[in-house]
Design a binder for these strands. Sequence first.
DNA 1: CGACGTGTTGATCTCTCTCAATTAGAGTGG
DNA 2: CCACTCTAATTGAGAGAGATCAACACGTCG
Lengths: 245, 245
Amino acid sequence: MKVVPCATCPLRPMPLFIAQTDAENALIETLKRDQVVVLADRTLIHEGQADAPLYTVLSGWAFRFKTLSDGRRQILNFLLPGDFIGVQQKMGDAAAHGVHTLTDTVLCVFQRDALWELHRSAPSLGFAVTWLTAHEESVVDDTLLSVGRRNAEERIATLLILLYKRAAALLPDADINGVPFPLTQQHIADGLGLSLVHTNKTLRKLERRGLHRIEDGRLHLLDVNALARIADLYGDGKPAPRPLI
Amino acid sequence: MKVVPCATCPLRPMPLFIAQTDAENALIETLKRDQVVVLADRTLIHEGQADAPLYTVLSGWAFRFKTLSDGRRQILNFLLPGDFIGVQQKMGDAAAHGVHTLTDTVLCVFQRDALWELHRSAPSLGFAVTWLTAHEESVVDDTLLSVGRRNAEERIATLLILLYKRAAALLPDADINGVPFPLTQQHIADGLGLSLVHTNKTLRKLERRGLHRIEDGRLHLLDVNALARIADLYGDGKPAPRPLI
DNA sequence: CGACGTGTTGATCTCTCTCAATTAGAGTGG
DNA sequence: CCACTCTAATTGAGAGAGATCAACACGTCG
């Protein structure tokens, strides 16, 4: 893929794309240092790696993760086009988490101090970055609620709905043919704090009940209401109704 | 407590206090709207509450949490002096999580658009807020790793160490007499995705082995090395050594 | 003094993990 | 074209960590 000028960034129409004026795009263009392609299933940033650059996902899927020394891995969240990579990392610091690709991925590379330049030269963009960072935290919050308090069936229903929404938001509206879903069951397991085997059994149970289907790398939600009921999800972050007693 | 001028903020000596110049303090002072005291065990912000203000913890402990509709609760992270409350919340949006006090707490209240003013008028402070937000996310990341992949004993050891460090960092250096620890076992359970009973049993097991002691609302770590070994924690975020095979 | 919150402990129960084995597809080399 | 290998998905069986249920102890407080 050719290097994309920020002014014609394919992500620009998306609401999550923060720069809207020409001046803002020009500034970002200045800070953008490169554009790289990473193949699927590669570790882009290793845990503890120093001096990792700042990225933005232009296309493709990836995930952030942490591991324990015996190999147990926890996926912290999934990264889709428009997401930042590496904001958590103070300049000169070691990455507290790794980043690994799920698909072939195109990334915009920014110089390490781009964040500071952004704040200095365009406070509105700096503010947007703060908000984006806070938003990513709230995604992790949701996962923590799942992993800490939902059982396997509820966790999987939650993940399927939330990932479906994120993936669908990146697609042209009329696309009813499911959404791309490049995760293996191992990734689902690692994202939800479950074992691979139990993930498989739970996934099959939901599938046999006709709630969803995963086929040819695409996810189809066949009964969103049933899934949402299982997940205890209510619309878009509206507070859940409480039982009276 | 009298209203504290930001210039003489007791948190100022702490490294986590971001404003360092007089101009910066003056700006913050401008945005600070009030200072409130909240008693222990009160819900400061309800889940789904709209228009919650922006706070800063001046003294006392609190926590962020989410609940499912049947009452299951997950504590997302603990808030200590110097922490922000409410950055995640886009202006005019509903809070995605609740905030509840553990102790009597003094909070600085900021107008809802203070964050934007900060970015606009003092980019260096705006940048600091971004970084603080990213840092809070990395705390949640750590918890997610625990809850997703550590067993009960490991989770508790991890929590004790990390909370001890945070609490100790707020204390005068020479204080060897443990650190304040206002959590009940129910809070520990809700923070680690465990049941109250199992939390109690695990806590007692560690205590009987002489690793720690919780007494009169203070936490003492009697064998940090053993705890760190159990937790699979290595220094300050240094990458864990891998077994060769 | 009784009610209540917190901590403690024992006895089940069950959800999830671990171990094992099989199937299916994709890719590779002979 | 066919064995061979690898990865991902699948399923069964047994084991275990942690949940749930039930009691009780202790201190505080109205």
